[in-house]
Design a protein around this nucleic acid. Sequence first.
DNA 1: CTACAACTAGTTTTT
DNA 2: CTAGTTGTAG
Length: 574
Amino acid sequence: MFDLNAEREQLLKTQGNLLVLGGPGSGKTTIALLKAGQDIGDGLLRPSQCVLFLSFARATVARVAQHAGSLLRGTQQAQLEINTYHGFAWTLLKSHGYLLRAGSPLRLLPPPEAAARLSGLKKDARGAEKIRLLLEEGLLHFDLFAKLSTDLLSRSRSLAHIVSKAYPLIVLDEFQDTNSEEWGMIRALGSGSRLIALADADQRIYEFRGADPKRIGEFIQTYEPTQFDFGLENNRSNGTDIVLFGNDLLAGRNKNKVYGDVAIKPYGFYQGRNSLFSLKVALIAGIQRQLKSGDASWSIAVLVPTKKLMIMASDYLSSTVDGLPAIRHDVALDTEGPALAADLIAGLLEGNSATAKDLSSKIISDLCAHIRGRKGNDGLNQAEAKLAAALISFVSTGKVTGAKRKNLVNESARIATERLSMRFCGDPGEDWLAIRRLLAGSSATEFVQVAEDAKFLRLLHKGAALRSRLGDMWRLTRTYLGASAAVRDALLQEHFSTSTKDWRGIHVMTIHKSKGKEFGEVFLFEGQYQGRFIWSGATESDISQARLTLRVGVTRAMKRATILTPRQDPCPFL
DNA sequence: CTACAACTAGTTTTT
DNA sequence: CTAGTTGTAG
């Protein structure tokens, strides 16, 4: 199944700290899992001890777990714990948070709620507010996980001892993309455990959030690891020029060359047709190729540089305009808007005992949170910020000026009244929909937006925990009292659950999100004005980051990569 | 506060 | 090209 050459054999025999370097698809994960299996099999771990494998994304964790399942025996798997950096940090903080802050146990501040609370603050004020929320309200922002875990481990020697006893060997996936806080946490863990870092300096695409080109050097200096480099090996797209193209792209020697299974397509614009027409046509050809190949588990990724273009692409693929069929696909949308919409709807479902006036105030507060947080970390525009401020002042003073705002306040009162005279049927899915329709029918665009965002929620499908919890609630009390808490739990669950996601079929996402994944075919698309691989005014360092990013995107492909760039103004890399 | 016109920028974020 | 921001008038 896997050819173990002399270097890999050597790695399996080597003890102490290791640094494993290698390009895309060179098999770093595989050899790390085999190494874990080897050490476990050799009896280097006691029965109570585990190898800890840490990665960034839940999707990667799921994929690594699946891979481990086919690579290792059951007894070895039992002593392998695979988790995200965040998931692991939270287990520490959950049980030992009392060491950081006296009083009530720490509560997580979910990203949507955090976005609503921090929006409008300047960058440095945000950091201070996160700490204030922790100390004064016991609310833990996700960004503080790594730093607080480090504090915990360095402050409590006994805890550090317990952790390194439990995990004598720790594998660090995607090490090149760790930021300084995560690096701090790793050093705290590494004081008592052996470390294996897996890294590819040329897949470092998160410099903007603190990944540092010096990091790998720091690891070498701190741990003096035995180094292995599988840089030139390629198990993902063997027999194609995909990795060769990626490496040439970095060196800037890809221009005017022809590569097997890498197609550069300059696309034109057609009168009266969507600017994504050429992408959809190319994608349809790709689907036909995949269907013809007879591979039942085929997968295709459409990768774009920006979230905005991702949404545009998803909308266009789903539509039937320009005489092209709708193409079913998955898209990884941001969750802030839908989550905050869910809070508002849950509040309405719950609102049985409240008076119409109380409920109306609650709706307005929830609406404010939705307005302020739905764009995530992107700041508010002026109109939104002013509206949110005016609504908050209305809740406390009862005064509001302006026709639009008066209408919004009237609408919330109307919605509250109508909700209280509503009769639920007891089917959570139906009742949820009834509330959503009530909001969608509002004359205020802000409520309609809530209903729109809520369409993207996947909380109440058949078999969902929330559905049965709301169902039980109704059976016991004939009300949905407690719905808010139930929805909050369900949303929070999503941030840590490593559901084994199926990567078959078509997936639309940003290039950044594709890191650590692989697909049969990949389509990379850039727009002409928006969503460029390199944007106007990019600095020297932006350009080198863009090269790394594009390389990561291309090398996700196992069989074939297609890059679409506007003919009128093609990407300077190509 | 709101509506309209002129202007301008156009990135990436795991949990 | 086009969505969002800024400025101006009512």
